[in-house]
Amino acid sequence: MSRYLGKKVAAALVSFLVTLVIGFVIFSLMPADPVRTLTRGRPTSEEQLAQIRVQLGLDEPVWYRFLTFAGDTLRGELGFSWQFQQSVSSLVAERLGPTLLLMGAAAVISIALGLWLGVHSGWRHGTLFDKVASGASLTLWSVPTFWLGMILLVLFSGWFPSGGMSDPSLAATGLEHVLDVARHLVLPALTMVLVVFAQYVTVMRASVIDELGSPYLLTARAKGLTDADVRRKHAVPNALLPSVTMIFMHLGTLVTGAITVEAVYSWPGLGYLTYEALKIPDLPLLQGTFIIFSASVILMNLLADLAYRFLDPRVRVQ
């Protein structure tokens, strides 16, 4: 077990290192002249430009700049935002909570809904229920997330707040504040759930159908168990195993959803921060959110591997 764990953690660390390299290439090597972007719109002499280059360390060799960048990132220093005049790490720390709340709520609801629909449409595949569930999830998957968000905003504009995470005029505390945030959370979370749950339906449905012909189900039926018991106690636990990995793998798509949903609902999280950074574009801030998003996806994939190992005794023995 510990060797397996070590291997997976090492692979994740390598992935993170690669993320750093890609981030470095995109944000430090690709922009033609970062100093000109930085001083854009202000009259600057060649001397001043050269001075800023030295200040930013741009006159150092590439490998040295990469090592400095990697070291800073590992110490949690993600640079300085041009737009907010504040360190990127402090901005990320401020915005992390709202994103986790939104993604967590959306993940829990969409996984529960998706798995339930997947189990039932797989168990009774070919029926009207299956066709409606599969059709609805396929259609919702084909919809741009941000568009669905805007449509829901138009539809429910009077019922739920149109943006933000809380009403500043209320200045509510305690339970009142929780309810206020919950009211603001409804539409963004609903948008994400509607787009994301489809993939869980597909995965779960396929693995339930895979189990359908298994002899152990015949045995269970021969014992005289009801159809619901055969499904709940025998088919679902087995079908759940392959789905768990897929579920974790798909959590990355939540990140994508978070960016567009937060942009539409001005939900003050990391996605909205990315959206704000894009308008300038504020490259240090974009680099910071890119690294945070990538790191979180790598972490989730690692958890998926470990969860699979833990859940499936067959893999554990090997």
Binding site: V255, L286, I298
Partner: peptide, 19 residues
């Protein structure tokens, strides 16, 4: 595999913002 592990939208955003 490394590219699969990266979240696609943040990568796409970063790339086109720089380009």
């Amino acid at each position: 595999d490394w590219f699969i592990a990266l979240p696609s939208l943040p990568l796409a955003i970063s790339l086109s913002a720089v380009l």
